[in-house]
Nucleic acid binder design. Structure first.
Lengths: 99, 99
DNA sequence: TACAGATATTATTATATTTTTATATTCAGC
DNA sequence: GCTGAATATAAAAATATAATAATATCTGTA
């Protein structure tokens, strides 16, 4: 990886590195959700969710399709779900955190 | 993942989400390096590297052993190297970036 | 066309991160 | 104990991110 690529990769990781945004990815792993479902399920404000979704979409982690007055969100790239397994192991093994 | 776990997972991801810190992980994938080797290879200042290493160590991504006046850095958890594969694919497939 | 539900945008404040520069510490060898 | 190489810490300024509240837009339906 050259410098420029690392900058972009860092931006993608940064987009995931937030509790709510991680939550969105986790929820969407189980299938499509509307924006309202997401912020209800994750317990944050509508405005907050809208902003976090924008960040996830910019990095093409989440895709949104419109249907009438609602928007349906889904994962672009399920490959990154591997990360959750790595993370679980890391938390247990290296940070002594029972999840 | 519950709220608290997501906070911690976000901190781990945040520790990776930086061009230099990504560079460190990448270089260390090829084996142990001293701090001097790292900042020479990655082209940043000694102070910068020292600070970035601290962040990586806090999240147990990098381990440091001392030998005389030098410190040798290595990866704690090679499992996260999977991330680089995911990332390459993502950059190509979703962000149209040739790496 | 007015209303209501769903979502987005903007502005603001608070807080955190990044980067640089200067200084400090640590330790081996003389 | 002094020196120099290797590394760490502190302080400061610039910039970015986070979070909230207020307002705007968009769209289907009465």
């Amino acid at each position: 990886m050259v410098q420029e690529v690392r900058n972009i990769a860092a931006d993608v990781l940064k987009a995931m590195a937030h509790p709510i945004r991680l939550g969105v990815i986790e929820v969407l792993a189980n299938g499509e959700r509307t924006v309202t479902e997401l912020y209800s399920e994750l317990g944050c404000s509508q405005s907050m969710m809208s902003q976090q979704l924008k960040i996830l979409c910019q990095q093409k982690l989440v895709a949104i399709r419109k249907d009438g007055t609602q928007k349906y969100c889904s994962l672009c790239n399920r490959d990154f779900l591997k990360l959750f397994d790595c993370m679980h192991t890391h938390l247990r093994q290296f940070l002594n955190f029972q999840d």
